[in-house]
Simulated scan of single mutants.
Amino acid sequence: MITVETIVNAPIDKVWKFWTTPKNIRKWNNPTDDWHTPYVENDVKVGGEFKYTMGRKDESICFDYEGIYTKLDEFSVIEYKLVDNRTGSVRFEIQDDKIKITEIFEPNPENPENEQKEFCQRVIDNFKKYTEAN
């Protein structure tokens, strides 16, 4: 399993909203400025499906990140299963006036784990930056 985390200086309702709404996901869901997420579908409920199309802006790399939600506790936990049967979770922990976000997921077998961890850490760090600035 791979684990990435960050601490966001924002209230839980804002963190949850920015994590789950398509218009916000499109703004933060990228590891660097040369990436983007032009398409987002997100039905936030148990059994609901999600699909994010991510890629480099120069179109040299593009992929869909998609799956189904298997557990949801608003403001607390999201668990999911990807279309390739890998699983993951995102936990939101209130720490005073900040929110600790921990994402744990099964790595894909095609890419080195350290690259996957670095990619996802940059994405979650970008979420922090976006949420705190907006």
Rank of each mutant, 00 (worst) to 15 (best):
V4K: 00
E5S: 10
V8W: 00
V8L: 01
W16I: 03
W16H: 08
K17E: 11
K17A: 09
K17T: 14
I25G: 09
R26Q: 08
K27E: 05
W28K: 02
N30I: 10
T32L: 05
T32Y: 00
D33K: 13
D33H: 09
D33A: 12
W35Q: 13
W35N: 06
V40I: 07
V40T: 12
V46D: 04
V46F: 00
V46R: 06
G48W: 05
Y52L: 05
T53E: 11
T53N: 08
R56D: 04
F63S: 06
D64Y: 09
Y69A: 05
T70A: 01
K71E: 11
L72V: 04
L72N: 02
F75K: 13
E79K: 14
Y80W: 02
Y80I: 00
K81P: 03
L82V: 03
T87D: 05
G88K: 02
G88S: 06
S89W: 03
D97K: 09
K98R: 07
K98G: 09
I101T: 01
E103L: 04
E103C: 03
I104T: 14
E106Q: 14
E106A: 08
P109A: 15
P109Y: 15
E110M: 13
N111D: 06
N111H: 07
E115F: 14
E118D: 12
C120W: 07
Q121M: 06
R122W: 04
R122S: 10
V123R: 00
I124F: 08
I124Q: 04
N126Q: 03
K129N: 15
Y130H: 12
